[in-house]
Write a protein that binds this DNA or RNA. Structure first.
Lengths: 119, 119
DNA sequence: TTCAATACTTACCTTTTGGTAAGTGAGGTA
DNA sequence: TACCTCACTTACCAAAAGGTAAGTATTGAA
């Protein structure tokens, strides 16, 4: 298993938050679990178009280790594994909301610029 | 100059915000400019302990291109270049505040855990 | 007996990110 | 003339992040 480096010491809050949220798919995993409550591994894989199984599992493991998500294995065949947000995960999602809104306004700005550029 | 890839298309707001804020030193640059208003290149370099000149300049250029910061050159010898936040940069900093607070709570949690672990 | 479904796991590779260290240019000072 | 400050710039390298594709384990169904 590829090990992780950071997890502190952090020089400020942003630093500490970025450490758990940086990763190509992590904020999308957060979003997906927040809107659906519980998702199976395969459901997440299909929802995050383009993610590789390796990265998905790696991100899920790190987020579990960081206390953001909960992993529940059902001993069935074929296996069933459910992922859901913990309280920390939900609060992180809350904290990300203003950033998401800022990004949404940026998207709209860029959309306008692109439309003007191609006119 | 190393070129950048992303700048859209983005699949959601978080994605769009992360694209401009991801980079080892960017949130620190944001913070530094927000608290001091205006900083020279050398002042930033000294404030961000450990940053290399190459990365500092690269981040500053990208942030300028993204409309987050303003760069003002004074034609003096030795040269003087002032960096400051634009309105977009300030609003991004605002949007990052809840995330920073979440990270601060995480730091405090980790601090407690580390203290317990070493006890 | 072979296959299907699910959730991984592994080896290997490419791309991206960031660091190091040396160099540039312009003009003021010793 | 040589040297200084400052803001870069460049070539080169190392590490981290992420992708591809094949393999594993389990067991019920065909």
């Amino acid at each position: 298993m590829t090990t992780r480096s950071r997890r502190g010491p952090y020089i400020c809050g942003i630093d500490a938050a970025m450490d758990v949220v940086s990763g190509k798919w992590k904020s999308l995993i957060l979003w997906e679990l927040d809107t659906h409550g519980t998702r199976r591994f395969g459901e997440l894989r299909r929802a995050l178009t383009g993610v590789s199984e390796k990265m998905l599992i790696q991100h899920l493991r790190e987020m579990e280790e960081d206390g953001l998500i909960h992993r529940e294995v059902h001993r069935e065949v074929p296996p069933r594994v459910d992922y859901s947000l913990t309280e920390h995960g939900r609060s992180l999602n809350e904290a990300l909301r203003p950033l998401g809104e800022w990004g949404q306004r940026r998207r709209e700005r860029l959309g306008v610029e692109d439309a003007l550029a191609s006119a």
